[in-house]
Amino acid sequence: MTEHRQEFQRQLEAIEARVIELFAMVGADLPGATSALLTGNNEMAGLLAEREKGISALYPELEELVNKEILLQAPVASDLRFLLAVSRIVPEIELSHNLVVQIAARADHYLSEDLSPRCRGLTETMGNLVADMWRAAADAWYQRDSSAAGMLSERNDELDELQSSLTAELASGRMTLPVTMEMTLVGRFYQRLGDHAVNIGRRVVFLAGSHPPRQPD
């Protein structure tokens, strides 16, 4: 491989590393946000907001890098699919992290005390499910595993069912109005996180092409 191509390969690896980093951040912050919400810990929100600022700088940098490589290297085959897939999932990750921050921002001493047990249970289940889905999406990306898309879609259906149950619980009027409104939003946030994970699964199908998944090291 020529020097020129080796440089290109290094750039691709750098982009992959950044993407994995972004995945990891969402993956780590999400359970934290869920538990912050349920325990009423509003410090988490502050921490995450700080992190968000740092990450916001990363997204345009990554996009810039991807644009440059597509322009100058005229990539084809797996290189092109990779760069196109990256440019499509970066917004999904960006929005997902935004949602995580929003969830953590809702954490409040009064809110957590006021949650009905069923609501608390559903929220925790939804939080865990979304965290699992997100981990699966990240793994699928790393391994280029196109079979994950089907699985993610199924779990998203599960998530939708949980969301319906949550809506029913909230509609029952067992909790105060402010809490109900906040939890409605939180439910929607989790649902949107699920949708983003499904989208990522679909992009991985495009990325993988017809090749089998690569084995984890």
Partner: peptide, 11 residues
């Protein structure tokens, strides 16, 4: 061939 070549050599 240019999107998803099957053979490693083509790729």
């Amino acid at each position: 061939i240019f999107n998803d070549p099957q053979d490693e050599r083509t790729k």
